[in-house]
Design a protein around this nucleic acid. Structure first.
Lengths: 139, 139
DNA sequence: GTATCTGCAAAACATTTGCAATTCT
DNA sequence: AGAATTGCAAATGTTTTGCAGATAC
């Protein structure tokens, strides 16, 4: 399960070899409680209200560190924006080209046998779909 | 089949409603004959030798136009680099984190039933995997 | 008190935009 | 000539880097 309380996050980050500074805890907490797959900017804007000295550099540093340590994963759906996800279970992402929202969908590419990749070492599986979501489709 | 001769490309682009200028033909030809999923820069550098007045703006314009008209597709595997592919059949991409090469693999996400996306309109399917390729794994 | 972490300012890239020159018919 | 295309130069936006000050153990 993904930890969501400050205490649990503190413990979780420590267990991954990351010192749980206030900034790091808050950034992880934001990712864990907002399943919106936010961009760096979204995280920065949301947290800057509370952490008034927060810099974007710290957000970048922290997200890179988390990604390296396999604490979160980065997802690519749109050019020139990287999004982040605290949910490390295998799943796909759907981006609505109208409302820009990113939805999760149930799909595990790792369960598929892919013959042409025999003898390849696989580190990450990603699946994404673009289109128009149910809501936007109605309007 | 993907056209690869200048004549065939000329005809193909016209059939898609795109005027076949020299630059456009050369850019399409590069994509059709180099299955390396090149970046904008790779295309530009490769063609600038021959088309000495070629500008990167034209490469950008042309690739955007091709993507809009569904003549090619853009693929995202790495942050801050968009790659392009003239092969429009459904398939996945594998990027080797050592040699940086991008391989195709056989996989068609569109054939999978994804229940959580019922009533969603789907425009594009993408699957990509990162890891270490067979060759790099041996060395 | 020494390592690490944070954050400002500047740099580095990829991509886009405005616009003038060129090309095609 | 008129419309579309090309390409230069400048602008934009995201991410990275260098470094100084702050913080933690």
């Amino acid at each position: 399960m993904i930890p969501t309380t400050a205490e649990a996050i503190k413990f979780f980050l420590s267990s991954k070899g990351v010192k749980p500074s206030l900034q790091r805890i808050k950034i992880y907490e934001y990712l864990a409680t907002n399943k919106s797959h936010p961009t760096v900017d979204e995280i920065y804007v949301a947290l800057a209200a509370e952490l008034i000295t927060l810099s974007k550099t710290t957000v970048y540093n922290t997200l890179s560190l988390f990604t390296e340590k396999n604490i979160i994963s980065s997802i690519l759906i749109e050019e020139n924006e990287t999004r982040y996800d605290a949910n490390l279970t295998h799943h796909g992402h759907f981006k609505c080209v109208k409302c820009q929202k990113v939805y999760d969908f149930n799909f595990d590419l790792s369960k598929r046998q892919i013959d042409s990749l025999n003898d390849f070492i696989i580190a990450e599986y990603h699946a994404y779909i673009k289109g128009v979501c149910k809501k936007c489709n109605k309007t």
